[in-house]
Amino acid sequence: MEAKKFLLKVSIISLSTIAVFVTFNYFLDIYGLFRPDDQRELKVYTNERTSKYLLSYHYIPDNFEGIIIGPSLSANLNTKTIKEYKIYNASIMGANISELRYLVDNIVERGNLRFVIICLDPYLTKDHGKKSARIDPKEYYGALGSTNLIKTYLFKLIRENELLPDKFPNNIINDYGYNNFNLELKEDNPREKILEKVRQKSTETTYVDPAAEDELGATIAYLRQNNIQVIAYFSPVPHQILAINTENYRAYQNRMLRLFTEQDIVLDLNDLRFKAITSDFNTYIDHGHLSEEGQKFVLGELKQALLENVQPRNLKYSER
């Protein structure tokens, strides 16, 4: 009898603890899943894949009219600087098109997207399929209680209170999805990085996985079917590296261009008219990722393309 009472007591305490924890998570709602509104500014503190995936259920579709998708080459574009439009940077470090499609589907189904910007680079289509289990529908209910959620709270505490600012800086990914990963990188010499690649004749692969190519084509078609303007751009490659791999890179570009139609906008930021910029070592932080100057260049070209093709809404909507 005493054993039964003990087990009952333990069960009641356990269930009560779980209920309190779930209720706490529900009201804190760090991903905007259960009580969405248009006044919250939600950031990412850790685990970019899961966090941006969960934000794609409500926060992004409820608050933004456009998104950028791509790998790390576009993840550090601060779309908040384009005041005429509200654009969430849904790019994910190391992501391929298979993983990004999960976010695209959620945002299109639940929001009112006007345009999607796609960063074109061979990394996006060099393989297909999820690279981890961090993007999965089961994560939705994990937002009520999981080890990932506890880890997120911990990183939120560390970053916002600047407990370890050198290792875990605050505001690493802002409320517009801008991943300022430059804060966590050790200072590199882009000139040395780029010239070393040239000396070794070491170029980035331009291989395209056929399945990934099909997925990208299907994603573009899906956006068109939903009357969403597609704007794509070939991410700028250091001209010195491009010069030793021109034939393969142009073949890659031509293959990608076949996925688009006249109603889409495709920008080639490796065009010779941009040679002064792509040849400048200060455009990059290493052999390919963009510095602040490089980011300004890309954002400027994207802003111009948007102004020419997508009518800005009123300023009240565009500024948060």
Results as ranks from 00 to 15, higher is better:
residue 154 L to F: 12
residue 154 L to H: 13
residue 157 L to K: 13
residue 157 L to S: 14
residue 158 I to C: 00
residue 159 R to Y: 03
residue 162 E to T: 07
residue 163 L to R: 08
residue 163 L to A: 08
residue 164 L to R: 08
residue 164 L to I: 07
residue 164 L to P: 02
residue 165 P to D: 08
residue 165 P to I: 07
residue 167 K to D: 11
residue 170 N to S: 11
residue 171 N to W: 10
residue 171 N to A: 11
residue 172 I to K: 05
residue 174 N to Q: 04
residue 175 D to Q: 14
residue 176 Y to A: 00
residue 176 Y to P: 00
residue 177 G to Q: 01
residue 178 Y to Q: 01
residue 179 N to V: 06
residue 180 N to K: 08
residue 180 N to L: 05
residue 181 F to P: 04
residue 182 N to L: 14
residue 182 N to C: 11
residue 184 E to G: 13
residue 185 L to Y: 13
residue 187 E to Y: 11
residue 187 E to P: 06
residue 187 E to G: 09
residue 188 D to P: 09
residue 188 D to S: 14
residue 188 D to G: 13
residue 191 R to A: 12
residue 192 E to I: 10
residue 193 K to N: 14
residue 194 I to E: 05
residue 196 E to I: 08
residue 197 K to Q: 15
residue 198 V to W: 01
residue 198 V to K: 02
residue 198 V to Y: 01
residue 199 R to M: 11
residue 199 R to S: 12
residue 200 Q to Y: 11
residue 200 Q to P: 14
residue 201 K to M: 13
residue 204 E to R: 13
residue 207 Y to C: 09
residue 208 V to S: 08
residue 210 P to D: 11
residue 214 D to C: 10
residue 214 D to I: 10
residue 215 E to T: 02
residue 220 I to V: 15
residue 221 A to F: 11
residue 221 A to C: 10
residue 223 L to I: 11
residue 226 N to M: 09
residue 226 N to I: 09
residue 228 I to R: 01
residue 230 V to S: 05
residue 232 A to W: 02
residue 233 Y to M: 06
residue 234 F to H: 00
residue 234 F to G: 00
residue 236 P to Q: 06
residue 236 P to V: 07
residue 237 V to G: 01
residue 237 V to R: 04
residue 237 V to Y: 04
residue 238 P to C: 10
residue 240 Q to S: 11
residue 240 Q to Y: 07
residue 242 L to D: 00
residue 243 A to D: 14
residue 244 I to F: 04
residue 244 I to H: 01
residue 245 N to V: 02
residue 246 T to G: 10
residue 248 N to C: 07
residue 249 Y to P: 01
residue 249 Y to G: 01
residue 250 R to A: 13
residue 251 A to N: 12
residue 255 R to E: 12
residue 255 R to D: 12
residue 256 M to A: 03
residue 256 M to P: 00
residue 257 L to F: 00
residue 258 R to Q: 15
residue 258 R to I: 11
residue 261 T to V: 13
residue 261 T to C: 09
residue 262 E to W: 03
residue 265 I to E: 04
residue 267 L to I: 05
residue 270 N to P: 00
residue 270 N to V: 03
residue 271 D to R: 06
residue 271 D to K: 06
residue 273 R to T: 15
residue 273 R to D: 14
residue 274 F to T: 06
residue 274 F to R: 04
residue 275 K to L: 12
residue 275 K to G: 07
residue 275 K to Q: 13
residue 275 K to N: 13
residue 275 K to S: 12
residue 276 A to V: 14
residue 276 A to Q: 14
residue 276 A to D: 15
residue 277 I to H: 09
residue 279 S to C: 07
residue 279 S to P: 06
residue 279 S to A: 10
residue 281 F to C: 07
residue 281 F to G: 04
residue 284 Y to R: 05
residue 289 H to F: 09
residue 289 H to D: 09
residue 290 L to N: 02
residue 290 L to T: 02
residue 290 L to E: 01
residue 290 L to F: 11
residue 291 S to K: 05
residue 292 E to I: 14
residue 292 E to V: 14
residue 292 E to T: 14
residue 293 E to M: 15
residue 294 G to S: 04
residue 294 G to M: 01
residue 298 V to P: 00
